[in-house]
Amino acid sequence: MTPFTRLDAKAAPLDVANIDTDQIIPKQFLKTVDREGLARGLFYDMRFDTEGAAKSGFVLDDAAFAGAGMLIAGDNFGCGSSREHAPWALLDFGIRCVISTSFADIFYNNCFQNGLLPIALPRDQVKALMGEARGGNHVFSVDLEAQTVTSPSGQVFAFEIDPGRKEKMLKGLDAIGETLQAAGDIADYEARRSLDQPWLEVAA
């Protein structure tokens, strides 16, 4: 996983609440067996018509937001399906940070598995950032070590993040490798369980 320390990038405002993962990436893009190439499906129904022709007006397709690395969205971003294709598509498009007032649990978790930073801030701060993002071509900064977002006008907002998740993001650690260091504990647990709950040892 690519470490995340600091990000200086344009931010695209998407002022819609309850954006679910079906909207982030619709079902027809879930048939892939790869993680890459999903940018073409990102926000597909908002960006393309039924014939597949580009619609005008979607913020990420606006030249002023070309190359945006952040998204500032309405409440409850990422609700619905557990599809990890949602963070994969955002990352493939170049988005490395999403700011909202709240995130659905599974989506939030999936972001951290992939080095996409979800930042939850109070509503007035999200509104302020969204206001500054409109019009584009402004650079926002996120400093994960310091846990701050700095707006183009210099407003600084602090955000909360769980220390374990922060460390993994900063170092780009592989969660599986880390857990396997506790393989001895896992084996001990299994040995205890096979005595306490022997019925679970018979092939399911």
Binding site: S82, R83, E84, P87, D105, I106, N109, N110, Q113, N114, D162, G164, A175, I176, E178, T179, L180, A183, I186, E190
Partner: peptide, 22 residues
């Protein structure tokens, strides 16, 4: 609980999940 694909891989490899309590 529902999990994402990275966690599916984590469970396949370790039969565990890393989590904070809700």
């Amino acid at each position: 609980q529902g999990i994402g694909t990275s966690e599916v891989e984590h469970v396949l490899a370790t039969q565990t999940l890393r989590q904070m309590k809700s």
